[in-house]
Structure formats: C-alpha cells, structure tokens
Amino acid sequence: MALTHPETELIPYAKGELAAAEHERVAGHLATCAACRESLAAFGGILESLARTAPEPPAVPWGRYRTELREKLEARRHRAWTAWWRRPVPLALSASLAAALVFIAVRGGQQPATVDVASVEQAVLGARLDLLRQYGIVENLDLLENLDVIHNLDGLETSRKG
C-alpha cells in the first residue's frame, strides 16, 4: 500500500470536520505514522498559541465609526442619484434615444400621402379662385365650342354645295 500522508486533512480531522469514512482513514494513518502524529501535534500547538495571543488591532471609537459609516452611506446614495447624469455614455445614449423618439413622433404624426395630394389640390384650386368666380364663362365653353363646330359645319356644307 502506497504511503500517502493526509497532510491537509490533519487539522480538519482534529476539529472533527471530516466525514466518517475520511475520519477513519486519517485515524488509521495516524496510528501507524509517527511523522503525521508529530505534525498534528505541532500544528495544533501553533493554532492554539495563535488563538491565545492574537494581537489586537488599534482601538476604534465605535460611535465615530458608525457616524462616518452613515455619512459615507448618505454620500453614496446622493452620488448614485446624480452620477447617472454625469456619465458621458449614458448621457449620449439618452440624448440619442430622445432624438429617436422625437423623430418617430414627428414622422408618425404626419398625414398619409393621399391626404397631402388633396391638400395640394385645394391649394391649387384656391389659387384659381378668380377663374372659378367666372364659372359662367367656363360653363358656356362647351356651347362656344359647339358654335364653332356649327360655324365650321356651315362652312363644310357651303363648300360641298359649291
């Protein structure tokens, strides 16, 4: 059987964190391996010493700590509210979006092309209002044309007889 030292499992073993099968395996190994027993004792001693003598960080006035924290939180909220307008990319995107919406609104609000033609026709008719006022003459145009034809017919008749 190959001798594989469960080095990284020694502390979890001592803390009772290993699953049952793994715990049994490490226990079996420790029963036969003096080097691992020695390592386990040394590591355990180091951790225990560190736990007893852990250095304390510089003292903090906790009231002031919480006041500072509150101020930072308020500043962050305010910045989050205003930062959106300061950023160039979102601002540019917003401007583009607004321009696109205006364009769509203007284009969408226009009347269909057939209505445009009607408007143009109305405008043309308006310009010809004087002509329309002389509608009686216009109405008699057919009659005048007929007189021409009659006059011509008279001429044709005369030439045929001649």
Partner: peptide, 9 residues
C-alpha cells in the same frame, strides 16, 4: 482552504 491552512502552518 485546507491547502492554504496547511501551507501556512
């Protein structure tokens, strides 16, 4: 984590 702890020790 076990490897970190082992190397530290």
């Amino acid at each position: 984590v076990r490897v970190h702890l082992h190397r530290a020790l």
